[in-house]
Design a protein around this nucleic acid. Structure first.
Ligand SMILES: [Mn+2]
Ligand SMILES: [Mn+2]
Ligand SMILES: [Mn+2]
Ligand SMILES: [Mn+2]
Lengths: 235, 235
DNA sequence: TATTAAAATTAGGTATACCTAATAATAAAA
DNA sequence: TTTTATTATTAGGTATACCTAATTTTAATA
């Protein structure tokens, strides 16, 4: 068994590796992720290596063992299932669920999590569009993809950006496009592939094909024609 | 704010004082309750006294301050609401809920607990028959008391148990004593205080004085001689 | 390659939370 | 009232989980 501190280390390593697609996870990466100092992290990493939850060497950095991976996946799974339960069953708002799920993910009862997962009807994605791993750690194909791969009628959730220049971020704020905003694709231009988005408050904005490549979205519409690729995710 | 360790100390003190009706709560009492050694408890009690969560002196023992009482009541409230939710909404068995509630009681979200309490319809008692305190810490009045405080002729309704070990629960099922069953007290032995119960179907069963302390009942006989004292409850 | 920047590591310290063993203070019993 | 338990307290130790400051190693760059 492992403490919730160790669970948080394992989850952080999982996020860096699987979420952020880092080939090598460093002590510094983990320290930044958890808001700790590197000597603290190094010390813990050494002790977790002795426990065979991870392996660590300078060439390949920190890596999850089979055992460590199983624990990490389980925490991510619980987090995303709880977020979904809080959102769908208990009617919490989209922005409230993460903080509570950070606590609930450490409640250790397989029966409890499978029970609420069954009540939810075995969903594949959490309210942020992130994939819920199955009991073996296999992820459903992620809905996260660039805005450019949309079709008309997509119900989109803005998940992030893959470009961080000021000019691009200014572009987004001028168009009133923010993280976690929702839009529907009204029209995609046949010539230049620019996209007309409508917000919940019926505000329209036109996004160029170039910009659309750098906006990461998930389509929340069931069985939408857009579903066809992969990318990065967060809890 | 306080850690979940401190929450457990405060809850233990509350249980000893309000549940077990101890006038003076000692370091040893707390150590036994939490399965710790007295020096460990003394150290913590000193630090919690500095934090004004409790007071401690040899004459009056350990006492909850206003602040400490509020925290303790809140943990007990969360515990009992979660137990009820697990039992009623998530269909867990009577004997499974306590262990999971021990974890869930430390999840810190007033909104979450009030939401599930509303879903349950604001019940006054948990699945073991223990009272759920309101937000101010006031307990609903109940006729509930241990079977041991009976007199001959009491017409009893089994409301719950204040002990959750397998051996005790097996004892009850062997004697065919279950939740909501009714019995009359035929005889109380003058020497060992064991009780002979008769069920509606005229089945007799003998309950030891020790077991009777952990069986919670209400007496349905008007003006019965048994009505005259207090009792113990557990979470 | 020499210099500089970044990352990892070592050394040493603090706070919490537990323990055992020994002693002191109280309460109970003989 | 002595003796004996029980309870509380002190002293000293371990493990975890954090920190800062200094140093070493490795990588980048001029
Ligand atoms: Mn999420
Ligand atoms: Mn989250
Ligand atoms: Mn209960
Ligand atoms: Mn309980």
């Amino acid at each position: 068994m492992q403490s919730f501190k160790e669970e948080n280390y394992l989850k952080a390593i999982y996020q860096l590796k699987i979420g952020d697609q880092k080939e090598v996870v460093t002590i510094t990466d983990i320290a930044v992720q958890l808001g700790l100092k590197t000597p603290t992290v190094l010390e813990k990493i050494k002790s977790m290596a002795i426990k065979k939850l991870i392996s660590y060497d300078k060439i390949s950095g920190v890596q999850l063992t089979k055992n460590g991976f199983d624990v990490a996946v389980n925490i991510v799974r619980r987090h995303r299932i709880w977020e979904t339960y809080l959102y769908k069953e208990l009617k919490f708002s989209w922005s409230e669920v993460h903080e509570i799920a950070e606590q609930l993910e450490h409640v250790n009862s397989a029966k409890l999590i499978e029970k609420i997962y069954a009540i939810l009807g075995y969903p594949k994605f959490d309210p942020h569009g992130d994939p819920i791993p199955d009991l073996k750690g296999v992820l459903p194909k992620s809905e996260r993809r660039p805005l450019s791969k949309s079709v008309e009628g997509c119900k989109l959730l803005i998940l992030g950006v893959s470009e961080h220049s000021d000019s691009f971020l200014n572009y987004l704020s001028e168009k009133h496009i923010g993280l976690n905003d929702r839009f529907v694709i009204e029209k995609i231009d046949g010539f230049d592939e620019s996209l007309m988005l409508i917000s919940k408050s019926k505000e329209r904005c036109l996004v160029s094909a170039k910009a659309a490549k750098f906006i990461q979205v998930a389509c929340l519409k069931e069985n939408c024609a857009c579903k066809a690729s992969g990318g990065t995710t967060k809890a």
